[in-house]
Amino acid sequence: MSEPEAAPRQETAVTSDAIESPLLEVDGLRKEFGGVVAVDGATFSVAEGSLTGLIGPNGAGKSTTFNCITGIHEPTGGRVTFDGQDITGLAPYTLANRGLVRTFQIARELSEMTVLENVMLAPGGQVGESVLRSVTPGLRSEVIKAEAAVRDRAWETLEFFEIDHLAHENAGNLSGGQRKLLEMARVLMTDPEMILLDEPLAGVNPTLEEKLLERIHELRREQGLTFLLVEHDMDVIMNNCEHIIVMHQGSVLAEGDAETITSDERVLEAYLGGDV
């Protein structure tokens, strides 16, 4: 199998030196499905501690970009760097353990497990994930202690996301919006450094949406977390993201703050063209 040469960079793309200290860098990312080019040389970076927006019309390649970054898909070409290290093509679990996690556009709850189990699954490196520790009489007490801590944190998280009343419910019985919240709760439990959020607010009621955004800002401020947010609600993007990346037909069309983006004619065209 011969890989195609990395696609030429988009001239229009702002190069990564525009950003002071990038945590995530995507360089010439390309993904083909059979004949379809879903991502076509996307190049951008995300500054550490930022809340960066990723927008673009339907089919622009945003979710596929997420999938390539997080190891769900193997990219056809290009490079992804996280925290200064090349992470292209690494397995999802490796990335998650390094602090790079994501939520899914269509929520993927573990439906035959309870909400609480879903959330308790997430924390990394749990002692009880070792068979020997779970079984051996003396060692199990350690597991139990750790479990109690995980449980308490899980309850707190569920309370925050206001789905604690559903804790013992099978996740498959949740509504669309509740599943989105569950996804968020789950990734937060992994103690990540950076979270890629794929339309996390779809189906979430406005009050909770406000609260979620607040929480995102709080996590940035207090723990220095970095967020890359895909969202179709322009108000949310414009009001919350200090940096916005616009994708169109698989590559980056424009980049900048809200003002730059809103005044960019090409962006308007892309959206109009996409909608017609």
């Binding site: 999802p92 679990y93 035959e112 997430a122 990734v187």
Partner: peptide
């Protein structure tokens, strides 16, 4: 059993 991809995405090998 429920969803292997999600499990991987949550850091489990």
């Amino acid at each position: 059993r429920e969803d292997e991809t999600v499990t991987q995405s949550l850091g489990k090998d």
